[in-house]
Design a protein around this nucleic acid. Structure first.
Lengths: 158, 158
DNA sequence: TATTGTTATACTCTATAACTATA
DNA sequence: TATAGTTATAGAGTATAACAATA
C-alpha cells in the first residue's frame, strides 16, 4: 500500500493514472525497451538509427529513390541523404543514375549490404523473441494484425 | 505491379520485406504518427517531450521523487531535472523537501498543472481516437492487454 | 513551377561524467 | 559506500531553409 500523505517516502508501486489510458504511451515504453536492447547490442557496429530500416527498404525495393525511401521510413529527404551516404561509404548500398529522370538516384544494395542486413535482422529477431516468445502464436498474429490495421488507418487519415 | 528491373521509376507500392517481420518496426511507425500529430497540435505550447508523461506521473503519484519519476518514464535522472525545472518554472509542479530524507524532493502538481495536464490528455485522446475509434471495443481491449503483457515481460527480463 | 538531391544549420532529446549533500 | 539531485557537456536524430539541376 502506498501512503500519498507521506511526502517523499519511497513507494513500492507506481500508478500510471490517466497516462495508462493512452495507447501511445504503451507503444512508446515497449519500443523504448526494444530500442535500448538493440542499441546496446549494436555498440561498436557504428550503426545509425534509420540505417537499418533504409537498408531493408532498399533491399526489398531495388531501384527505389531516396525520396521514396525517406517517405517510407518517415524521415525527411535531407536525413535520407546522410543515411545513404553512410550506407555507400560502408559499401552496403549504391547510388545509380536513374533511367529517364536525371534528378533521381536509384538505390541498390550490395552483397555486403545484404549480409549486413541479414546479420542485423537476425540480431533484432533474437531481441524481440525474448519478449515475443512469451506470447502464443495466435496472440502474436492478433497483435500484428491490429498494429497493421492501426497503421493503415493512420495513412488513410493523412 | 512493380517492375524492379526499371531502375528509378516511381513505383505504386512499396514492399517492406523482412522489415515487416519486426514488431518493433510496426510499433515505431504507429508511434511516429501519433507523435507527429501531437507535436503539430502542440506547436506554440512550448511542450517538451517527456514533460507530459512526467506531469501525469506526478499527478498520479503525489510526493514521488525525481529519480522514481525518471525511472518510470524511462529517462535518466539528469533529464528529469530539466523537465521538473520547466514544470516548476511554468507553475505546473512544485518541489517540496521530503520528510525524513533531506536529499529528496517530493514532487506535487499545482491546480494549474492539473488543468494543463487535463488539456493535454484530452488533446491526445482526440488524436488517438481518430485511429482507435476504427477498432471495436473488444479489439482495443485485446490490444491494450497484449501491450501491457509485453511491457511486463520487458521489465521481468531486465 | 514542382521535384530530387544536397548542404548547412539549429534544435531537441538523451546519456555520461563529475560534483554536492546527504544517507 | 551508495543515493538524490544538479550541472555541464557531447552525441545522435531530426527538421528547416536555401540551393542546383532537372522535370
Amino acid at each position: 500500500m502506498n501512503d500519498a500523505e507521506t511526502a517523499g517516502t519511497a513507494r513500492d508501486s507506481l500508478q500510471l493514472g490517466r497516462l495508462g489510458d493512452l495507447v501511445g504511451f504503451r507503444l512508446r515504453r515497449i519500443q523504448t525497451h526494444f530500442g535500448r536492447d538493440f542499441g546496446t547490442a549494436m555498440v561498436g557496429q557504428g550503426l545509425r538509427s534509420g540505417m537499418m530500416s533504409t537498408l531493408a527498404l532498399i533491399s526489398a525495393n531495388p531501384g527505389i529513390s531516396q525520396s521514396e525511401a525517406a517517405k517510407a521510413v518517415l524521415l525527411d529527404k535531407s536525413a535520407a541523404v546522410l543515411i545513404v551516404n553512410e550506407l555507400e561509404r560502408r559499401g552496403f548500398a549504391r547510388r545509380v543514375p536513374a533511367e529517364g529522370d536525371r534528378r533521381r538516384h536509384a538505390l541498390f544494395t550490395t552483397p555486403e549490404g545484404e549480409a549486413f542486413l541479414t546479420m542485423l535482422l537476425d540480431h533484432l529477431s533474437v531481441i524481440e523473441d525474448r519478449v515475443l516468445s512469451r506470447l502464443t502464436g495466435e496472440e502474436l498474429r492478433v497483435l500484428n494484425r491490429l498494429l497493421d490495421r492501426m497503421y493503415e488507418i493512420c495513412l488513410a487519415l493523412e
